[in-house]
Nucleic acid binder design. Structure first.
Lengths: 239, 239
DNA sequence: CGCGAGTACGTACCCACGGTATGCAGCCAT
DNA sequence: ATGGCTGCATACCGTGGGTACGTACTCGCG
């Protein structure tokens, strides 16, 4: 807004992004234009949200026109999806990096938890992935995307922990556990970042999840079987 | 859509909603108009989502005009918020009803869990509260609303369980636990409803959460202290 | 080197949709 | 009875997503 540019026809005069080696000049310019669009869109979506960000503002920021945008993307939602994939991919890679080399499941779980709590401090992750992802992409599509990245990490960790407990659960139940932890951490992450003292809040989340994991470990040691729900609720399941 | 009406000027000829006793005719009509708007909006938002639902469609469905809508609500978002509050309120009341009379914390927790799993089967709750709530209202406002209803229920249950364990946690940590469970259940609920076999999926969620609660109970019995994170991760917190 | 084809945009335009300004018919208190 | 206020309806506007089309530049090929 403040750094508005009057004429977009100077596109060739200004350098945009880093040239990609091994591609033709044409392809380089094309790629950098696309990158610029995603860059600007990421920033604006993060700051103002999806609905409040107009395509005009985005193309102005990237110093191109709508023609360029619609050449690279089928529409606003597709652009959002590109941004989503980038943010989601970065997050997933950061978590995987933190998991590197960890063998002990519990250690791995704590490392993953900490990495996720770092990721969720990023405004772009909260806004684009957690907050607006399900709404803009629709839940189905949102889920497909997650399944291939961050959720996969969580599933990996959860599976390790469950296997360490030597309960042999079917895939469905593992997925369920992973969903639960993923949802828990997303929700916790949001509250962490909006807390007056995020560091303290993150510490609390670590304690809470750690406590749950400790419960798992004790159950594993004492050889408690699954399922255990009936033992908790004596009365029959009245529908 | 299918029951569309051509002219909205017949508003006085058709009965709208139930007359409210103890109010003037004017007030009755006004209230029923407002109700009709919320009714139609709830349906359309649930079916097509917030963004894809136009005000024109809503007012056509309620057989009024935009003038009426803007008389009762300050805009589209305010209308959504009215729908949100209703859905959220219904959900909260349903859960509270299920909790009625339960004294044992673990029993109470399972009852609450089951009630929530019922609630989350409703398409309107998933779409309006879980999926689009955070995006449309903004996270801050979404949280304020939740805090007064369903989340309050979760916090109540979680507090009971934690007190039964005789860990005396500060309010912040109780809130953190509640957030975690709330997020876990929301996420689980979404996956339940989109699963090929929702009944089986709901059963899985019950097993999983029940298992976590079982962990809590065992930890309570063996007198494990909080926090326990350091015991899990030997290495120092390197940032 | 010339040249046709296709890419990577730019320009101009459409129209759906949220929001506003204003008019007006009843109802209700005085 | 009547003035005023509530509860709408009508008409209009601006923004913004999307589209149709034009065009310059590049690249491969003879």
């Amino acid at each position: 807004m403040s750094k508005g540019v009057s004429k977009p026809s100077v596109s060739k005069l200004v350098p945009r992004g880093v040239p990609v080696p091994g591609a033709s000049r044409r392809q380089q310019y094309s790629a950098s234009t696309k990158r610029a669009l995603v860059d600007v869109a990421e920033q604006l979506f993060t700051d103002n949200g999806y609905a409040a960000t107009s395509l005009d503002t985005i193309v102005a920021g990237a110093r191109v026109t709508k023609g360029a945008l619609y050449h690279h993307f089928s529409g606003k939602q597709a652009l959002f999806e590109a941004v989503f994939e980038r943010v989601e991919g970065d997050a997933s890679r950061a978590i995987q990096k933190a998991l590197k080399g960890k063998k002990d499941p519990w250690e791995k779980a704590i490392a993953g938890l900490r990495a996720f709590l770092e990721v969720v401090q990023e405004a772009r992750y909260r806004r684009i992935v957690i907050q607006e992802g399900p709404s803009v992409l629709g839940y189905e599509r949102y889920r497909e995307q997650e399944e291939r990245s961050t959720f996969a990490n969580v599933l990996d960790i959860v599976s390790s922990v469950l296997e360490a407990g030597e309960w042999d659960l079917d895939k469905d139940l593992q997925q369920t556990f992973a969903r639960i932890f993923f949802g828990a951490m997303s929700s916790a992450g949001e509250s962490v970042s909006s807390a007056p003292d995020p560091v303290q809040a993150a510490a609390n989340v670590e304690i809470a999840i750690g406590f749950i994991l400790e419960g798992f470990r004790v159950l594993a040691e004492t050889g408690v079987e699954l399922p255990v729900v009936d033992a908790l609720a004596e009365e029959p399941v009245e529908e």
